[in-house]
Amino acid sequence: MLRHLSLNKETIIAMAALALAWQLASMLFPPFLFPPVPAIVEQFFNIFRSESLLLNAVATLARILGGLVGAFALGTMLALVMAKWEKAHRHLYPVLHFNQGIPALSWVVISIIWFRNTEFRIWFIMVATTLPAFTFQILDAYRSISKDLLEMSLSFRPSRYDLFRTLILPTVVPGILTAWKVNLGNASRVVVVAELVGATSGIGYQLLLMQQLFNMAGALAWTLMLVLFVLVVQRLITLIEDHVLTYRAAAERGI
């Protein structure tokens, strides 16, 4: 069980040490700066006890996944266009590269000015910030298709669908899974900023409330919730990786 959750002995010791250090700090500083660990844990479980609070967490998680799915779909299309047409690549690459340099906060301001609907605003911010990375990573994965294996496959005269299913998909899947892992971390940071400024629900909004109430335990509880979500989804992706990329695991173990 611990192995599946990636909780090795060192992880448990490190986390326990962190909690202990925090608890010690709470004895030295006032609670609004360093609340005791039990208070943070209680606030964390309170989120699960209250339906309205839990809905805030669900809203954020849905926004993250919705934004990532949108960026992934759009990024896949752009990557395929760039892979197929060199001219398109030459034109799109600088735009995406430029886009990478735009801070998430700028997208927040732009989307608030451009769009009225809150959910669309957040979705737009998520897509705008994660699209370049998805596109470049999928493009790299597509370009990593071995010419030798392509020739070998073509020598058996496959249909386009079979070629996609048996060669292209298995080649690009590792890159796609890595892209999801990387972008999940980025998206979880961006969504909080987007909600903090432009939403009336979600973890970001709750963090804003906690700041206004000077409730450090609540702020940490909501932060923990977001971290937990990212870790769980990343673990799920790793489990998928282990299942889909059995041969890699075997190669690493030298079997």
Partner: peptide, 19 residues
């Protein structure tokens, strides 16, 4: 020519993800 011609290439060209 599907199934009528087969090729053995220089190098094995095996798919690493297949047994």
């Amino acid at each position: 020519f599907r199934g009528r011609i087969a090729v053995v290439f220089q190098g094995d060209r095996l798919m690493p993800w297949r047994s």
